[in-house]
Design a protein around this nucleic acid. Structure first.
Lengths: 201, 201
DNA sequence: CCCGCTTTCTGACAAATGTCATGCCGAAGG
DNA sequence: CCTTCGGCATGACATTTGTCAGAAAGCGGG
């Protein structure tokens, strides 16, 4: 029997995935969590064979949770499950030691298949996505550029961002300008969009 | 036996919801769809008792699909299922004649409960959300303001929008300016954000 | 130890954006 | 019939944004 835990913030989707997994005779849902920190806590308690983690969760994402789970439970296999097949997400997930990367677009039966293959020691990654991640290259933004871009993403003015991050307005402008150039965009909003779809933000 | 169809673009979530529903002895999934138009098509073929429709789908949203289904199959009950409990969504869903409005945050067992209640002739709406929708008031944007704001939402410049919609730049600026004021924002990006979270866009 | 990179800052400039006043037209409503 | 509202447009104006050059500090690798 393969014991898995399931972390996903939307309760209805979590319940639905649990029922999907429970259909499999050789897989059992040993715990559920609604956030990254809670996933770690549950993992430590139930010591699952496989941890199924959503990326888009409040309070720290699933990749970070996966990294911590692997530190504490090296025998556990981490499967990242996400709505968006963003190259940057895949890259980060692999660097964090994930054994599989699934997008929710793929057919439902692939979930159980991935859990079995991961449990058997294999890695599961969509080949097309892997190619996209490699061809897209690494995140070109410096950590600080990423911070400033993220802080400006919600429509704040330069003044707002400067105050929030304790910087001068000129500095914020310069960082945004270089983020715009590195993302090959024409303005802030486009830069935010590109960074998001690439999983850089 | 209550016969339902299920429209949701993410295949894995769709499969999971189907398996959740199939656990209920008195409910049966009679058809599945991955887009709005496909939902209509499937509905016409299988003539379900209840249509379960996601809002966020490619190619026309679930609310529009629900409206069409109701025109063709007046006996069918429409349940809107959505990730985001936005007041504007609820309002539009109700105006389109939906019998229930569920957010995916709510517990999994509420899905089957809602299907049964809707089939029995009741309406199912989260009271907190209903209050929010009423207190938020109707969409203050005129149709054209909404168009222009939507066209500018992806980071296009005013010139881009003007060309795309065959308007002068000044006109676009004026519409955006009035959209900014009506949403009590300080710039385009904030206006887009507000409009999105209210479900006006 | 020096080179290159990141982080931080300033000041100046050009371009884009947001606001306002004003005007015209057509449709809807009293 | 007159008023109001939405859609469309201009032109002028102030503000915000994006770009560029230059400069200092600190950190790491070769």
């Amino acid at each position: 029997m393969i014991r898995v835990i399931l972390a996903e913030d939307q309760a209805m989707v979590r319940g639905a995935l649990a029922s999907l997994i429970s259909l499999e005779p050789d897989i059992e849902v040993a715990g559920e969590a609604a956030s990254g920190p809670q996933a770690l806590e549950v993992a430590l308690r139930v010591r699952p064979d496989v941890a199924l983690l959503d990326i888009e969760m409040p309070g720290g994402d699933g990749i970070e949770a996966g990294e911590r789970i692997l530190r504490e439970l090296p025998g556990c296999r981490v499967v990242i499950l996400t709505t968006f097949g963003r190259p940057g997400y895949l890259r980060r997930a692999m660097e964090a030691g994930a054994a599989a990367f699934l997008v929710k677009d793929s057919p439902a039966r692939e979930l159980a298949a991935a859990i079995r293959r991961v449990h058997a020691g294999e890695r599961v990654i969509d080949p097309g996505l892997a190619a996209a991640a490699l061809s897209a290259g690494p995140n070109p933004l410096s950590p600080r550029e990423r911070d400033i871009l993220a802080a400006a993403a919600d429509g704040s003015t330069i003044g707002d961002v400067a105050r929030r991050l304790h910087l001068s307005e000129g500095t914020v402008r310069n960082y945004l300008s270089s983020a715009i150039q590195k993302t090959h965009s024409r303005n802030r909003v486009e830069a935010v969009q590109r960074a998001r779809t690439q999983g850089w933000l």
